[in-house]
Simulated scan of single mutants.
Amino acid sequence: MTSAVALHGVVKEYGTGGARVRALDGVSLNFPQGSWTAVMGPSGSGKSTLLHCAAGLDRVTAGRVHLAGRDITRAPDGTLTELRRRAVGFVFQNFNLIGSLTAEQNVALPLKLAGVRVPRQQVRAVLARVGLADRLRHRPRELSGGQQQRVAIARAMVTRPAVLFADEPTGALDSASARTVLDLLRAMVDETGQTIVMVTHDPVAAARADAVVFLRDGRVVDHLARPSARQVADRLARLEG
């Protein structure tokens, strides 16, 4: 399958001299187009670093990164910024919505920041896609946590990105809201061929993905295809033990 994101022998180090820390140690991974991959591992295993390097938010120390058909390893900052605006969506645990803006305005914000004319119908269509057609003019304080996260997903999707990167997208939600968000992500993959790379600590969330990759000490140590939540939890427990 064609890769939406590919890492080849990626090393990422922070610090210098005796304080140098190797967060990623020779990671090679392919994330196929139209697939959902969960990335898991103990605290400090390199999950978030992997996400940041794959998305072009952080430079690798060694190795190569391909994103949306481009080798971004040594790409200039301006090129990376443009590629992220065009081809990448981000969803985080904390919804990062602007409190003074409506749901519709929050979703349109990435387009405005990129200097793109905001097609209102496109914004409203993506809010309808996440089940919030009747919440266009509501501000974040008027929405539940699950609804706020769906606004954040709509904001990430309005540019129709090649890849959606999600960092603990259900971490701040109750179980019912988390299930709604996971159902939405699953539908995006199955119905529109969206590619999702998601960092999570939750076996239930990971089990909704097509595949789960496990990291430990900056290395890929296991891979499960379409696992159950119990299988994910058991494997994670062995890694943390």
Score class of each variant (00 low, 15 high):
Leu215Ala: 00
Arg226Trp: 07
Cys53His: 01
Met188Thr: 13
Glu142Cys: 07
Thr195His: 07
Pro76Met: 04
Val88Cys: 08
Val10Gln: 06
Gly193Thr: 06
Asp234Phe: 15
Thr37Leu: 10
Ala128Glu: 10
Arg64Glu: 06
Pro32Tyr: 08
His201Gly: 09
Gly69Arg: 12
Arg216Pro: 06
Leu29Gln: 02
Gly17Tyr: 14
Asp217Leu: 06
Trp36Glu: 06
Thr16Tyr: 10
Gln147His: 11
Ile153Tyr: 01
Leu236Trp: 06
Leu109Gln: 02
Gln122Asp: 10
Glu168Ile: 05
Gly44Gln: 08
Arg235Asp: 05
Leu24Ile: 03
Ile153Asn: 01
Ala154Cys: 11
Val123Met: 09
Leu67Asn: 00
Glu82Gly: 15
Thr49His: 00
Ala187Leu: 12
Val10Ala: 02
Val197Tyr: 03
Met157Thr: 02
Phe95Asp: 01
Leu80Asp: 04
Gly63Cys: 03
Thr2His: 13
Ser48Met: 02
Arg230Ala: 15
Leu164Lys: 01
Thr37Val: 10
Ala205Asp: 07
Ser175His: 07
Ala154Trp: 03
Gln231Lys: 13
Ala133Arg: 15
Ser43Lys: 08
Ser177Ile: 11
Met198Glu: 00
Asp202Tyr: 11
Leu24Arg: 02
Ser43His: 11
Arg135Ile: 04
Arg85Gln: 12
Asp71Ala: 04
Phe31Pro: 03
Asp222His: 06
Ala211Ile: 01
Lys12His: 11
Asn30Val: 05
Glu191Phe: 13
Thr195Gly: 04
Asp71Trp: 00
Phe31Leu: 13
Val151Ile: 13
Ala187Met: 09
Thr102Asn: 06
Val221Tyr: 05
Asp167Ala: 02
Thr49Ala: 01
Leu127Thr: 06
Glu168Tyr: 06
Val221Gln: 07
Asp58Cys: 07
Ala4Ser: 10
Leu57Cys: 00
Phe90Ile: 00
Arg186Val: 11
Leu236Lys: 04
Gln231Met: 10
Val126Asn: 07
Ala166Glu: 03
Arg124Ile: 13
Pro161His: 08
Ser144Gly: 08
Gln147Asn: 12
Thr170Val: 13
Thr73Ile: 05
Arg22Glu: 09
Met157Ser: 03
Phe214Tyr: 07
Met1Tyr: 10
Gly41Asp: 04
Ala128Thr: 10
Asp190Arg: 12
Tyr14Asp: 12
Ala209Tyr: 01
Leu80Gln: 13
Ala87Val: 09
Ala133Cys: 15
Asp183Thr: 14
Lys47Asp: 01
Met198Trp: 11
Gly89Cys: 05
Ala211Phe: 04
Phe92Ala: 01
Gly15Met: 05
